[in-house]
Design a protein around this nucleic acid. Structure first.
Lengths: 341, 341
DNA sequence: TTGTACGCGTTATCAT
DNA sequence: ATGATAACGCGTACAA
């Protein structure tokens, strides 16, 4: 049914291996021979069988990226990875882990069978055992965005701590007194780093820092909503809210609306931006992380390790950019209850 | 280096094929034998080699989903596909085509080599030749969201026409007089279907319909921005804007803000919702498409075709839901220039 | 510059 | 219920 190297060889009047060499540029082939081969390939509509090739070479030329691709930030990181991978002759398998350990483990199992050449992972703290498993099987991997305690590995991440510090310092400079910080889960290193940066700035400003203003939860819109409700219902609510990512920020804005509070007149809001090209960043002062660049660098680290499995683990910390938006209000106008459209 | 079926067989004191049968449940294996085999598998840490298996069986148990995964809507569809695929024992390769013909063709080529079992594609009009190529190689595929003229294939899509009609009728019922329609590219069937539905509603209401109020462009935020600027700068601007998807809607809202126009007091806005869990849908009346369901159904169609390659092409048109939000204003408060934070 | 022989790890086929 | 043999399609090693 399917056309094989043999068929092409027969048609071109050469041996199979010669065809292989002509197509893979793995050895010199006479100009005329090569022409005959290429002609045969075209006529027969030959498509090389990468499965057979992989079996023989023990290389699949396939990489996997494990994360929650539903989140546009990671989708953008994926783009960075893909672009570079394509150039280097690798395909990328994107996998939805939903940040859930079970799904993560399941995918790793599936992909180990498929003999994937390498992994790029956005881990949580729970990923430790899974990563150990990869090590046991000598499959290279690179971490993105988050470090995992006890796992020495190549890693690319944004400078969350510095970013959070800049954001907080900016807030203090513009007159903020009580800054509520709504952050992600303790199982994710960035959530804690952003808290640390926030505390750095307070300390530098000689402010005490009220522990009760820091709320750990999820990097999600519902959590932003819920945490805001809790903070603003207190006797002494914060005058400013720091959302540890943009999903949280959206929830924050929604919750403030239900309280009838205006942004930024009544409560100022800032956030870490984990999405590109989406609304939040246009209205709020944010710290922007270079998603695509992150992907590109992760890929580069992985390729380097594939080439030299024994090099020392490398950690790249990307600088993040504070983007202050003072001249821009919000394009949405507050609607009146019962009056929207 | 790697443990093989042979190694396990030797350890368990049986032949390789017996191990294969025990692991794949492809034939009965004595209870005691099976136990010995499973023990050996565990002791040796055996991981089956799917590459070899694929070569022998000519089945990779791998499917591909081609689209722009950066768009959360497609990412959600992907989730629907993945969930079902996992259950059925298939892996899914997600590919970013950016809706660009070249990237699409490149991926198809790459994946044909890998002997992928089937494709799920979000096509544009330009995808025709690529799909023909798949047919030539007898690789099954399913289309999602869009039909392609001249290509008979399984297809799942939302009822754009009806959705647009409902949305438009709703607007007319609430007093809209001049509805500007900002839609996607002519190369995408949904863009035209939404126009058709819009025109259906106008016709049904006995309204003339002003062709100049319909603007084709892209399904992007910048296009929404640009088109709105153009429409609102006219001598007789529309009193209502219909964004053909949510990215466009975001651009629309931004542009209206630069004009100092309020939503919905000055201009009402509605849109097709191509994203879940994101801001737009919370403030505007929208038509919601069941993304995850779309993915699930697409997968089901593909599996059916894998089982019976010769069945007649099937087209599933999903009903869409009009979600009217009148009781909800916008959580963002308009900031004053120079005063944000 | 081109060819021969063999093996990668698994499963289809036939046999016991 | 289990085994022997061959073959899937390609690339490595060596040879000519």
């Amino acid at each position: 049914m399917a056309v094989t190297l043999q068929d092409v060889a027969a048609r071109a009047g050469v041996s199979a291996i010669t065809v292989s060499r002509a197509l893979n540029h793995t050895s010199y082939v006479g100009a005329e021979t090569r022409a005959r081969i290429l002609a045969a390939v075209a006529e027969l509509n030959y498509v090389p069988n990468a499965v057979a090739s992989s079996l023989r070479s023990s290389k699949t030329q396939l990489l996997a990226f494990l994360t929650d691709i539903t989140n546009p930030f990671w989708a953008t990181v994926a783009r960075g990875i893909e672009d570079g991978a394509m150039e280097a002759g690798y395909g990328v398998i994107l996998c939805n882990t939903d940040e859930a350990e079970v799904k993560e483990a399941r995918y790793v199992d599936l992909l180990l069978r498929r003999r994937i050449d390498g992994f790029i992972v956005v881990p949580t703290r729970a990923s430790g055992p899974i990563l150990q498993n990869l090590k046991r099987h000598h499959v290279p991997f690179v971490l993105v965005d988050r470090a995992v305690p006890g796992v020495a590995a190549d890693c690319v991440r944004g400078d969350s701590r510095s970013g959070a510090e800049q954001l907080t310092a900016h807030l203090l400079a513009t007159g903020a007194r009580r800054i509520g910080l709504i952050t992600g889960p303790r199982t994710v290193s960035t959530a804690e780093e952003r808290v640390a940066g926030y505390q750095d700035a307070l300390r530098a400003a000689g402010q005490p820092g009220d522990e009760s203003l820091i709320l750990y939860g999820q990097y999600t819109e519902p959590w932003g909503y819920q945490a805001t409700q809790e903070l603003m219902a207190r006797p002494r609510p914060p005058d400013t809210l720091f959302a540890a990512n943009n999903f949280i920020a959206i929830g924050v804005l929604e919750a403030l609306h239900t309280f009838g509070l205006r942004v930024p007149e009544d409560v100022a809001v800032v956030c870490f931006d984990d999405m590109t090209h989406l609304t939040t960043a246009r209205f709020l002062t944010t710290v922007i992380q270079p998603a695509q660049e992150m992907g590109r660098l992760a890929l580069r680290l992985l390729l380097a390790r594939l080439a030299q499995p024994d090099r020392a683990p490398e950690e790249i910390i990307l600088p993040v950019a504070l983007v202050v938006r003072r001249s821009c209000g919000c394009p949405f106008t507050a609607g009146r209850p019962g009056g929207n459209q």
